[in-house]
Simulated assay, not measured.
Amino acid sequence: MRIISDYQFVTDTDRGATAAIGNFDGVHLGHRSVIEMARDAAPDAPLGVLTFDPHPRAYFAPKSAPFRLMSSAARASCLAGVGVEKLYQLPFNTALASLSPYDFAQKVLHDGLGLKHVVVGADFCFGEGRSGTAEDLRNYGAQLGFGVTVAPLMAQTEQTISSTAIRRALSDARPRDAAAMLGHWHRIEGPVIGGEQRGRELGYPTANMSIDGLHPPAFGVYAVIADVLEGPHQGRYHGVASMGVRPMFGENKPNLETFIFDFKGDLYGAPISIALVDYLRGEEKFDSLEALITQMDADSLRARAILAAL
């Protein structure tokens, strides 16, 4: 997959694509439906996705609480996995935000990227002040010479599938409900970072990861699938992970600590992906280290049983 980050400097080989447009945070089932519609709209054209980095919400409200379901790198990896050939990942800045809806359609979609066809959700808004609608885009496409398909919102039973609904499920300690809307397990991806090595002293060495900038799922303990993405230990493993601030040790910066079952090796700096499969219990502060170890033993046994049944 090629990543194009400037609509004003696009090679001829990167023009003429069909593209789904949106933020695609989580790459959930609704997103995948829009991408499939883009594929079907022009099957002979390269399949593209047009998205933005940073997320427009972060641009307009930089002090808002972290809300991203995945990093830009994880999103790109996920989009590549569903067959996207061209990722137009445009910087969302003052210049882009100031374009009128028509100028966005003309200067970015038509003149800049040279898109053949675009697909957007029914709730798509664009241009300065989010004043342009999906119907406006359809009209501009007819004038400028590119096709526009407006995809209906996708529902699962009575709930519309959306990144907001997925965040709510994760906050409510319902990772399986989140996975049902995503079409895959919710994952935290990134490099293993250094920690205090307390887990090693307790007999539970962990791979620690930052969750900075991401929507924090409910704090507590999870049964997880751990994928080591590169290096000598590359592969898939089962494990148990703690999400939170580690109240037993007076910490206050949340992170994710994963104990990988039956694993020996050094993962510092290695890129890993942790899938949250099931929520086991909330975060607790124990009266003693012995009580903590006893609970960790019980958590591991329960996680092994859950993961073995997948």
Results as ranks from 00 to 15, higher is better:
171 S>D: 11
159 Q>H: 10
136 D>C: 06
155 A>D: 11
172 D>G: 05
74 A>W: 10
185 W>N: 13
145 G>D: 07
138 R>T: 10
161 I>M: 06
104 F>K: 02
93 N>L: 02
154 M>D: 08
92 F>K: 01
161 I>P: 03
168 R>I: 06
174 R>L: 14
172 D>S: 12
120 V>H: 00
165 A>F: 05
179 A>T: 10
150 V>Q: 12
127 G>Q: 01
66 P>R: 03
87 L>K: 00
68 R>M: 10
150 V>G: 11
129 G>A: 11
102 Y>G: 06
75 R>T: 04
137 L>R: 08
158 E>W: 04
89 Q>M: 15
172 D>V: 08
78 C>A: 14
159 Q>T: 14
123 D>Q: 02
110 H>M: 09
149 T>V: 14
79 L>I: 11
73 A>L: 11
108 V>F: 03
161 I>R: 05
62 P>I: 09
101 P>L: 02
97 A>V: 01
90 L>C: 07
87 L>Q: 07
143 Q>L: 15
157 T>M: 13
143 Q>M: 14
152 P>W: 09
184 H>L: 05
146 F>I: 03
178 A>N: 03
160 T>L: 12
165 A>C: 13
175 P>R: 07
142 A>N: 13
159 Q>G: 00
139 N>T: 15
123 D>C: 03
121 G>N: 04
99 L>F: 01
113 L>Y: 06
69 L>T: 09
117 H>F: 08
85 E>T: 10
69 L>Q: 07
69 L>S: 08
145 G>P: 03
101 P>E: 01
150 V>F: 05
138 R>F: 04
63 K>Q: 15
107 K>R: 14
109 L>S: 07
146 F>T: 05
97 A>H: 00
67 F>Y: 12
86 K>Y: 11
100 S>F: 02
174 R>H: 13
146 F>K: 02
134 A>L: 09
155 A>F: 14
89 Q>D: 13
176 R>L: 08
118 V>N: 00
97 A>D: 02
110 H>E: 12
72 S>F: 11
171 S>R: 11
136 D>V: 06
118 V>I: 12
69 L>F: 11
